[in-house]
């Protein structure tokens, strides 16, 4: 039995080394900009670059749009499918798994072919249109995660019983959704939102192929031209990702729980 624990500790230590060393190395590298001493010059240089603020701001904006659209597309669908059309559920699960199977690169290739400036829906013809396309692409990318977060949220609160209880007390469909369901799955939605944000914020492939001034393409540009700033940006990105995941963890503590049905 002690032997077992020894193995467990050994595996854990090796794994921890693999994951922590690159972070330490990157951090150390990011401090090396000034010759002969450690400094935060690389970070100062990053923050002084106006393109950093612009591209980061753009990606944040697109990220927020992605979250709003994603919630509007996913939440009502999950609710009504769970409640009224359970036979549609396998179909929904299939759809939400597709973005995990079809590479994003392939999808964006399809978008560019389908929505080019000479097509029926010429989204790539204008900046606004391309932004809409980018948002749609990101919603697709985040669909599996948003769907799972919302679906789990609705499962834990047993929306069927909640809805019936509200109906007995005379609530309308609209009141049920806004006053009963939404507050109860808010934590789940926010979890999905932060995950979406973490996925979208540094995304490179789609943004670069659609030629939008997002954070991902900016990072690659810096990577080819600079030596120390990329390391600083990697640390900054890691902190942003950590922040988004930390929020999910924090929110998890406020998640409403009803005792699960034993059926």
């Amino acid at each position: 039995m002690n032997n077992n624990r020894l193995w467990a500790w050994l595996i854990f230590a090796l794994g921890a080394a693999y994951f922590i060393v690159p972070l330490l190395a990157t951090f150390e590298f990011s401090l090396r900009m000034r010759r002969g001493e450690y400094s935060f010059d690389a970070y100062a240089s990053v923050f002084a670059d106006p393109r950093f603020a612009a591209s980061f701001g753009y990606s944040v904006l697109i990220g927020l749009c992605t979250i709003v659209v994603g919630v509007l597309v996913v939440v009502p669908a999950v609710y009504f499918v769970r409640l009224r059309m359970p036979w549609l559920k396998p179909f929904m699960e299939f759809i939400t798994l597709l973005p995990l199977v079809i590479p994003a690169l392939v999808l964006v290739y399809g978008y560019i072919r389908l929505y080019n400036s000479s097509s029926l829906i010429p989204l790539t013809g204008s900046a606004l249109g391309t932004d809409i396309l980018l948002t749609g692409a990101y919603v697709t990318l985040a669909l599996p995660y948003m769907y799972r977060a919302v679906d789990n949220g609705m499962r834990t609160i047993d929306i069927g019983t909640l809805t019936e209880a509200a109906q007995i007390m005379g609530a309308s469909q609209w009141q049920i959704i806004v006053q009963i369901i939404l507050p109860n799955i808010l934590v789940a939605i926010l979890s999905g939102a932060f995950l979406t944000f973490a996925i979208v914020i540094g995304e490179f492939t789609i943004a670069s192929l659609l030629n939008r001034p997002a954070f991902g393409p900016y990072l690659v540009g810096i990577g080819t031209n600079r030596a120390y700033e990329p390391a600083a940006l990697a640390i900054i990105s890691f902190i942003i990702t950590w922040g988004a995941m930390g929020m999910i963890n924090l929110l998890g503590r406020f998640a409403p729980r009803t005792s699960p049905r034993t059926d």
Partner: peptide, 27 residues
């Protein structure tokens, strides 16, 4: 928690981190 972060720490920043670790000038 760390797995949640690291599984999303992909793409460009990850490449930067490994260049800083195992690149020719990496730590």
């Amino acid at each position: 928690t760390f797995s949640g972060v690291a599984s999303n720490f992909a793409g460009v920043p990850l490449a930067f981190a490994f260049i800083a670790t195992l690149g020719r000038l990496g730590l």
